[in-house]
Design a protein around this nucleic acid. Structure first.
Lengths: 324, 324
DNA sequence: CTGAAAGCGCTAACAT
DNA sequence: ATGTTAGCGCTTTCAG
């Protein structure tokens, strides 16, 4: 691997000069500049970003910790984050915690060790205290942590929209499927809102939560099939992710429950999967792309302390397709 | 950010000693060791991986370039690769080329600059020559490049299985939907095999290819709807990815074509999406997890040059669900 | 058992 | 317009 020294030697100058043409700083005669470029070319020289980082105390890397890359929401999110990170000349180090608090903690340490310039945190099994003493900007998805900016969709509004829609179309026997509510997540507001509205209408939904410690989507089925079986009169379901809703639709098909005829289903996220389902899923759209962009901007551009804005809440709206 | 110097100072020793306890090398008195640990604790010291990399000339980072994180196959692949990389104490730098040759090239340079220890290449719009002069191990997904190991599924066998199945169930009006065949990919063997078998049975499938320069999955629909509309007698389709097949199923539903009654559909990949579809997709299973593991092993463990093995082909089999 | 010093590849004062 | 030199944080000979 050619270093700056090799280039300098080959071009008959010192490393300073090479560094200068590399960074286009100071005065250079066209002649030396050309010589240096040619030497670089011949040696297929690429500056060592590690050495540069060491000096600059900036690695140009954003860390992203998420609970599961194979979850369509996080896959899309990661894709957009990568894209915007790149646009801002940052690289993305992706860590998949698999919902495991220990791995999450290890990743936080790992990323600190690796001198990342910012962390985007979308996995939240970890206790808040673990974030103390980290000296890079942290942006959080769907969770509030003191002193850190967060990005989320208007979860409460989303829950309201879903509830009102189900009520509007006359659902009375309603179930709600959500992630585990033990986790201190803003997405729990979807549930809260949903129950608030339902309560106002005298409806008391059945609530089913996923487990925190099961990493296999088969366990979705293990909760959904019994739910549908034990409650044949159910006529409305709000699931807090499109992936959950997809499992519901598939179960309905297999149990010969007609959607939306017998049962209305509403999801949340509006990932591209939702358009692929049969029937296409009615869902609450959250602007994943814009949220990803905001996360990168927050991570990337140091905010002046005096006008630090913690909350970055994005509007949601309902996408009415064919399941409700 | 505390450095090794700060720790040394606080513990009343030199940096050498701190380095020793850090790496657990040489003789240390229990006393100094304790003092050093305590100082580290108090300063919340984490060694600077950048500085270590600079010295060691190893970054501990594997680069992964893929065409689209939002494609379920690549999302799953990336998830598994991340997992195995982590198991081998490597970090993963993910680059999403979005099928763009220029970005791909930039990523190769970027990763070289960043001193990655190995590259896993799953995006292939790039010319082979661009890989010359890269001084880290490269392993390739689904493409053969001279001198580099590659990992793939037994694409030809997969195509045969799909064709035989369609023929077995009596399909005679057959279409084939695949990625763009201009790209020099091993997955083209799926097509080749499929056509070989069909030809043997005197069947001449309609072939539809995706475009290389369109990054939006809506364009899948733009090819699928016309196909189904213009060929109402079609009774069998082999799509070279589950995602493509999912689009077919959705289109069928909307055009009131019964699957598998009117039309049989077979996909390829066996991503978790395929189990979510309605009806659940019959598909060719490729062992994504094992392939990811192999890629990481190849990337990670330098092979002795004398018994370098280029091809790592994984067996496929058909998963018979409800679409064929 | 511990310290001094050199060096990994690069950048930036500070000369000249 | 170019060179000399110190230093980023860490590891490792080599001394003691």
């Amino acid at each position: 691997m050619a270093t700056i020294k090799d280039v300098a030697q080959k071009a008959g100058v010192t490393v300073t000069t090479v560094s200068r043409v590399l960074n286009n700083r100071g005065y250079l005669s066209k002649d030396t500049r050309d010589k240096v470029f040619q030497a670089m070319e011949e040696l297929n020289y690429k500056p060592n970003a590690i050495a540069r980082s060491l000096y600059a105390k900036k690695s140009g890397i954003i860390g992203l910790i998420l609970p599961a890359l194979r979850h369509p929401f996080f896959a899309e999110l990661a894709g957009f984050i990568e894209q915007y990170a790149n646009l801002h000349a940052y690289k993305l180090l992706v860590c998949d915690s698999n919902h495991d608090a220990l791995r999450e903690k290890e990743f936080v340490d790992l990323l600190k060790s690796n001198q990342i310039d910012a962390l985007i945190m979308a996995s939240h099994t970890l206790d808040v205290r673990e974030f103390a003493g980290l000296d890079y900007p942290i942006v959080t998805f769907d969770r509030i942590i003191d002193g850190l900016s967060y990005v989320c969709s208007d979860n409460y509004r989303g829950g309201v929209l879903a509830a009102e829609r189900l009520i509007h179309v006359g659902c009375e026997h309603v179930a709600h499927i959500c992630g585990n509510l033990q986790l201190d997540l803003l997405s729990n507001d979807r549930t809260k809102a949903f129950l608030d509205v339902m309560d106002k209408h005298g409806i008391n939904p059945i609530i089913v939560q996923t487990q925190t410690d099961v990493f296999d989507y088969k366990h979705y089925d293990n909760m959904i099939y019994p739910l549908l079986k034990d409650h044949p009169h159910l006529n409305g379901i709000f699931a807090t992710s499109d992936l959950l809703a997809a499992h519901v639709l598939r179960a309905c098909y297999e149990m010969n429950i007609k959607v939306p005829g017998d049962l209305r289903v509403i999801g949340y996220d509006d990932v591209s999967l939702s358009e692929l389902l049969v029937p296409q899923l009615t869902t609450i759209h959250q602007p994943i792309q814009e949220m990803a962009e905001m996360a990168v901007i927050l991570a990337t551009q140091a905010q002046e302390a005096d006008r630090f804005q913690q909350a970055h809440v994005f509007p949601v709206h309902m996408i009415q397709r064919y399941t409700c």
